[in-house]
Design a protein around this nucleic acid. Sequence first.
RNA 1: GUACCCGUAGCUCAGUUGGAUAGAGCAGCUGACUUCUAAUCAGCAGGUCGCAGGUUCGAAUCCUGCCGGGUACGCCA
Length: 599
Amino acid sequence: MAISHTMNWPKDHRIMANIQKRIESILSSAVVAAFGQEHADADPLINPTKDPKFGDYQANLAMGLAKKVGQKPRDIATTIVENINEPEFFEKIDIAGPGFINLTLTQNTINDSAENILGDLDRLAIAKTEDKQTVVVDFSSPNVAKEMHVGHIRSTVIGDALARIFDFLGHDVIKQNHVGDWGTQFGMLIQYMDEMPDEDKAAHESGQGDTLNTIYQKSKKRFDEDADFATRARERVVALQAGDEDTLAVWQKLVNESETYFDSVYKRLGVSLTLENIKGESFYNPMLAKVIEDLKTADLLKVSQGADVVYPEGFKDRDGNPMPMIVRKSDGGFLYATTDLAAAHYRIEDLKSDRIVYVTDSRQSQHFAMVFQTLREAGWAPFNVRLDHVPFGTIMGKDRKPFKTRSGETIKLVDLIDEAESRAIKILADKNPDMDEAVAKDVAHTVGIGCLKYADLSNDRIKDYIFDWDRMLSFDGNTAAYLQNSYVRCMSIFRRGEIDPASLAGAKIMAVEAAERLIVLKLLQLPNVLQSVADSLEPHRLCNYLYELASLYHSFYEKCPVLKSEGETKTSRLALCLLTATTISHGLALLGIDTPEQM
RNA sequence: GUACCCGUAGCUCAGUUGGAUAGAGCAGCUGACUUCUAAUCAGCAGGUCGCAGGUUCGAAUCCUGCCGGGUACGCCA
C-alpha cells in the first residue's frame, strides 16, 4: 500500500492542500517536543526554497532560537529534526549553513497534493477562510458629469481585483463606488442645462449633441467668464442644498445619465461594479450634521478661523502646530473629510464591516491617515475594525510626466480601451492571419483589455509606472498576453490530442521529472500567495506568481513531451497541463482578466 | 520648513514581510524550428541594491543621518 494512505492527513482536503501550513504545523510540533510548550508560538519560518538543491521548503527558525535556548543553531536544528514525528512526509531533511533545515517532500506527498487539486478544480483545493470578515472595498469613484479618464483606471482595476480575491477567500465583500455626485460644481452645471436652448437639450438627450462632459466644460467656462451666470449658479447651489424640487430633478437626471455611462465603461473593462454598488457622496448628506454633532459630543470639535475642525493626534502643520482637519467650512458647508467620516461610520454601523479598504491614489495618504485617526478617537472605528488605505502611484508617459495626449490633454478611459483593442487586433492579425474575423475581434478584446489591466496590476502599486503600449501588449515577459497564451498552449494539447479534459478526473499524477516537480511545487503555493495579497493588498504578487508558473510550464513543455508520451506518464502530464491551465485562468479571473480559448 | 513615498543591470520591473551565490523581460551576443511550441526554450554577458553609519549569526529588506526625485500640508475632492 502506498505510504500516502497511511498518512495522517487532516480531514479537510483543502487544508491538506496547503502544504506550507501543514509543514508549519509539523515543525511547530517538533519544536514543542524538543524545547517545550513555551515555544509553541514560535513561527517556524517556513518558505519555499529558491533553489532545488536546498530541497522544497526550508525552515529558518533554528538561528533565531539560538539565544533563547542557549545552544548552537545547528544543534537546535538537529534536535528539531529528531523530533519531527512524520518522517514519511519528507524524503530528506538536511541541515545546512548556519542552521537552515532543508525539507524535501516525498514523491507521494507531491503526487497526492497535485491529485488533490485536480479533484477540486473549482477552488483549486483552496479552503475558504476560517476568519470570515465583512470587507468593504471602496474603489473607482468617478465624478458625475465628467468623463472617466486615465486617472480612474488604477483605482477601478486594483479595487476590482482585491474585491474578487477577498470574495474567493470566503469573505463577505461589499463593493462601494463612492461617486462624486454632490458639490458646488453642480450649481453651474444645473444652471447651464436649464438655460440651454431646447434644441441643444433635445440633441444632447438623443445622444447627437454635446456630451455631458462637454456641457460640464462649457458651464465651467461660462462660470469663469460671466459674472451674472456665476451668481445664478451660486443660487442654484443653495437651491440644490435646500432640496428645491426642480433643481433636484435636473440633478437626478445628470446622475442617472452619468451612472449609465459608468456602467457601460465597467462592462467594456470587465469590471464587476454595477449600479447597485454606487453609493455616492449625496447618500451621506443626511448624516453630515450628525457627524459634527457627534464630534462635538466626543469633545473633538474645535473652532478655528470660523471653521469647525478636529485635531487628530500625531499631525503637525508647517509651523509645528497641531494640524486641523476641517469638517465644516466657515460658511457652513461640509467637506469631503466630513463625508468620509460619515461613510466610514455608516459602513461600520450599518454595513457591519470588519474591514474597510480605500483604493485611491497616494496623494490622499495624509487625508486618510487623519480620517482614520479621527475615527479611532471618536470611537466610531473600534480597534478590531481594520482600516486600510491602498495608495497607488501615477501613470506616467515615456517622458516621465503624468500620462497625457500629445497636446497635453487628459486621456479618456474609453480612448485607452479603444486603442488597446485596435492594437491587439493588429498584433493578432500579424501573428495569426488565418483566424476568423469575428473570433479575432473577440480575442483582441480579451487580450487588449487584459493587457491594459494587467499592466496596472503587475507593478508594485505604490510606485509610479511608465505606460508603454508595446511593452504591455508584448507576448514576452510579465504580461497578460503571455499568460493568456500559456493557457491557450496548455489547452491546445487537449484539442490536438482530441482528449476531453474531464476524462482526467481522478487521474494519477507522477511528477517525477524536475520540471514536473517544480510545477507542482508552484501550484502548491497559490493559497499562500492569495493570502499574502489579501494581507498586503498588493495584487502584483499574484501576477508574479502566475508569471513564474507560466514560465515553469514553458520549460516543462520543452522537456516533457505530453502527447508523445504513453500510458501513465501521458495521463500524468495531461493532468499537469490541466492544472496549470486552470490555475492560470483562475488566477487571471481573480485579477478581473479573461482568458481566450485560442490566440 | 514638516510629514509620507520612491531610488536595484543600458531600459522597464521583481525580490515570498530579515535568509543561502540579488532575479526576470526588453535591448546585445550564442545555440535550438520537417517537432504537442520560434507568440517559445536553453545559455552568455550585464550590479558600489543612491551614499555613510548602526542593529543582527545574516540587511536590497529594519533603525539613524545625508543625497536625489515625487507628493501632501485650512475652508476643492
